[in-house]
Computed example of a mutant assay.
Amino acid sequence: MANITRRLFIHGRVQGVGFRWWVCAQARRLGLSGWVRNRYDGSVEALIHGAPDAVEMLTRLAHDGPSHADVSRVLANDEPGGEDFGTQGRFEQRPSV
């Protein structure tokens, strides 16, 4: 099955609790590429690319996050094209937007 790309917007108490670090660790463990960043509105955004079952697993995990997070909602949108958007197979933290 072909790889897919999904964008997540995670809301709640998700900044200042190690959420970006946690997403990177989970994504790398699942063999995903992409990136994660804080947003100035207090949310966290992630673009994840890889096998559909791994993308789905990270999407489910994001609803809980690390132990100090309090996730209120996760919005998930599949992106057309199935590309990793320039991450060359890595998962990284990006600057806030």
Results as ranks from 00 to 15, higher is better:
residue 1 M to N: 06
residue 2 A to C: 01
residue 4 I to Q: 10
residue 4 I to V: 15
residue 5 T to Q: 04
residue 5 T to M: 01
residue 7 R to H: 12
residue 7 R to N: 03
residue 7 R to T: 10
residue 8 L to N: 04
residue 8 L to D: 03
residue 9 F to N: 10
residue 9 F to I: 12
residue 10 I to P: 11
residue 11 H to E: 13
residue 11 H to L: 00
residue 13 R to D: 00
residue 14 V to E: 04
residue 14 V to S: 06
residue 15 Q to I: 02
residue 16 G to P: 08
residue 17 V to I: 01
residue 17 V to P: 06
residue 18 G to I: 03
residue 19 F to M: 13
residue 22 W to G: 09
residue 24 C to A: 13
residue 24 C to M: 14
residue 24 C to T: 13
residue 26 Q to H: 07
residue 26 Q to L: 02
residue 28 R to F: 00
residue 28 R to I: 12
residue 29 R to Y: 00
residue 31 G to L: 02
residue 32 L to F: 09
residue 32 L to G: 09
residue 32 L to W: 05
residue 32 L to H: 08
residue 33 S to I: 04
residue 34 G to E: 09
residue 35 W to S: 14
residue 38 N to E: 01
residue 38 N to R: 05
residue 40 Y to L: 12
residue 40 Y to H: 13
residue 40 Y to Q: 06
residue 41 D to S: 05
residue 42 G to R: 03
residue 43 S to D: 11
residue 43 S to K: 04
residue 44 V to M: 08
residue 45 E to L: 08
residue 46 A to G: 07
residue 46 A to W: 07
residue 47 L to P: 00
residue 47 L to M: 12
residue 47 L to V: 15
residue 48 I to M: 13
residue 49 H to A: 04
residue 52 P to R: 06
residue 52 P to F: 02
residue 53 D to Y: 01
residue 60 R to G: 15
residue 61 L to P: 13
residue 62 A to K: 02
residue 63 H to W: 06
residue 64 D to V: 10
residue 66 P to Y: 04
residue 66 P to V: 11
residue 67 S to Y: 02
residue 70 D to Q: 14
residue 71 V to A: 10
residue 72 S to K: 11
residue 72 S to P: 02
residue 73 R to M: 07
residue 73 R to I: 00
residue 74 V to M: 01
residue 74 V to A: 03
residue 75 L to T: 09
residue 75 L to A: 12
residue 75 L to N: 08
residue 76 A to Q: 05
residue 77 N to Y: 09
residue 78 D to F: 07
residue 79 E to K: 05
residue 79 E to A: 13
residue 80 P to L: 07
residue 80 P to N: 06
residue 81 G to H: 11
residue 81 G to C: 12
residue 82 G to C: 13
residue 86 G to S: 12
residue 88 Q to Y: 14
residue 92 E to G: 09
residue 92 E to N: 07
residue 93 Q to K: 14
residue 94 R to M: 14
residue 95 P to F: 09
residue 97 V to Y: 04
residue 97 V to R: 11
